[in-house]
Nucleic acid binder design. Structure first.
Length: 465
RNA sequence: GGCGACGUGGCCAAGUGGCAAGGCGAGGGUCUGCAAAACCCUUAUGCGGGGGUUCGAAUCCCCCCGUCGCCUCCA
């Protein structure tokens, strides 16, 4: 079964055939003007699952993801915080990495920024001017959409349809309402860079065209981003890049990730209706958030709810329940019973990275492992199933091993052992009330006791009052 | 107004022509001193509404209703 990926350009799922040996992928990252919110996490977790699955399928990948480190919002934030724009982007880029590391998002190969690529951006704009795709008006440079007849291919916006109803006023200097800024003349007091057209800074779209070209080349395989970037951002990138290089297509596959909404509206920094990832991680395990985000197909919207997150936290516990007595250090072959689940998992992921379907099969496998155990299968058969489950979960970036799951305090473990043994004596003496008190007390501290026929086991968990 | 998504059980959610996955929740059972966990069983004769195509439709076509996104910065 071939891997298929949805392409916004065609509106269909297409068989994935990269141009070269290494898949070249660019993802529009964030403007680091504040801490990343759940919507950002959704995008980057989805991209991470895509990456991990490509790797699982044996593809080599080069992944570039930018930071838009200078724009109006960053400047505004800098004024609020009383620091430089550079400091704001530095501060919140770091916050981005902290949040994404916690969520298990693998790092991209390169994180270019606008300010690093200023000379190349200026050269790109210069090139578009020389080729006659752009014009200068009083220190501003605009792209001339009229010169690029293929404009609108990604978003389906043709001139009559798309812009007639937009009621967009023609900004002074623009020849066509569809034209967009490549370079913006500096306003007083703003950070600015020298250019052949005077002091200013780049328009929003040109950075990505430039950085794709500088870090990956003229034509790439995958360009990802959130759905709200389809128009105008990605449409404009195509126009700039294809006009500049004369090569088509600029990008083969355009996957777009759905938005997270809250109270019926898109979650966004601008609307001030967001929940930051770091706040969520105060109250919920990172892997629960990751499971929650991947439980919906990446192209569908998610109406964010903490109730849903809590349900995912329970689901995560269920997945982990299959790892009782997990001993990966004892190698075991993959048992027969695990095969069908693995095949279904791959089938789901092959079908446009259907993580929601894949997770369903992971739950089925967990039940199968537990069933095997309760029916007395060999420990080798159990371990083999568990290794498979852990490996497949890892393809989704879901860290299941209990060892990594919760905070452990190894230095107190001997004391816990002692309590467990003492409680065992109480149970033997049928001192149930006392034994139950010990169990409840330990549970409050994040130690869960389970009395089994063969004896009492315990493990670290989330403290449960 | 234009372009584009989406609407599946109490909640979340997969499923794009052939018996409606899965999770959370709820109820019952097995196990247990009691729990917990696990396992077993039950919980959508129906997929926003109405037409149509087909032997057969959640799935394809048409109309309608509703929600969201984009058209301005946005992940």
């Amino acid at each position: 079964m071939a891997l298929r990926i949805y392409n916004t350009l065609s509106g269909e799922k297409e068989v994935f055939e990269p141009r070269g040996e290494t898949v070249l992928m660019y993802v529009c990252g964030m403007t680091p003007k504040f801490h990343p919110h759940v919507g950002h996490a959704r995008l980057f977790v989805a991209v991470d699952a895509l990456r991990r699955y490509l790797a699982y399928r044996g593809y080599r990948l080069r992944h570039v993801q930018n930071f838009t480190d200078i724009d109006d919002k960053i400047i505004a934030r800098a004024n609020v915080e009383g620091v430089s724009a550079a400091e704001v982007s530095e501060r919140y880029s770091r916050s981005y990495f902290e949040a994404m590391d916690t969520l298990g998002v693998q790092r991209a190969d390169v994180y270019p920024t606008v300010t690093q690529f200023m000379p190349q951006i200026i050269a790109f704009v210069q090139g578009l001017l020389e080729k006659g795709y752009a014009y200068v008006v009083d220190g501003d440079v605009y792209f001339s959409v009229e010169r690029f007849p293929e404009y609108g291919q990604l978003s389906g916006r043709t001139e009559e349809g798309g812009l007639a109803g937009a009621r967009k006023e023609l900004e002074p200097g623009k020849r066509d309402p569809r034209d967009f800024a490549l370079w913006k003349r500096a306003k007083a007091g703003e950070p600015a860079w020298d250019s052949p057209w005077g002091e200013g800074r780049p328009g929003w779209h040109i950075e990505c065209s430039t950085m794709v070209r500088e870090t990956l080349g003229d034509q790439i395989d995958v360009h990802g981003g959130a759905q709200d970037l389809i128009f105008p951002h990605h449409e404009n990138e195509i126009a700039q890049s294809e006009a500049f290089t004369g090569k088509r297509p600029f990008v083969t596959y355009w996957p777009h990730v759905g938005l997270v909404t809250t109270a019926g509206e898109k979650m966004s920094h601008s609307l001030n209706n967001f929940t930051t990832v770091r706040d969520m991680l105060q109250a919920h395990p990172a892997m629960a958030l990751r499971l929650y985000l991947l439980s919906t197909h990446y192209r569908s919207p998610i109406a964010f709810s903490e109730e849903g997150l809590r349900a995912s936290a329970r689901g995560l516990q269920r997945l982990r329940s299959a790892l009782v007595d997990y001993h990966p250090e004892r190698p075991a072959p993959r048992p027969e019973y695990a095969q069908p689940y693995m095949a279904r998992f791959e089938e789901a992921m092959d079908d446009d990275f259907n993580t929601a379907g894949a997770i369903g099969h992971l739950f089925d496998l967990a039940r199968e492992i537990n069933r095997q155990r309760s029916e007395g299968a060999s420990s080798e058969a159990g371990t083999g199933g568990q290794v498979t489950q852990v490996a497949l979960a890892n393809v989704l970036g879901l860290q299941l091993e209990p060892a990594e799951a919760v905070e452990r305090h190894e230095e107190v473990e001997p004391f816990i052992e002692l309590l467990v043994q003492t409680r065992q004596r109480l149970r033997e003496a049928k001192q149930w009330k006392l034994a139950d008190e010990v169990r409840a007390g330990l549970a409050r501290l994040g130690v869960a006791l389970e009395d089994r026929p063969e004896g009492t086991t315990w493990k670290w968990t989330e403290p449960r009052p």
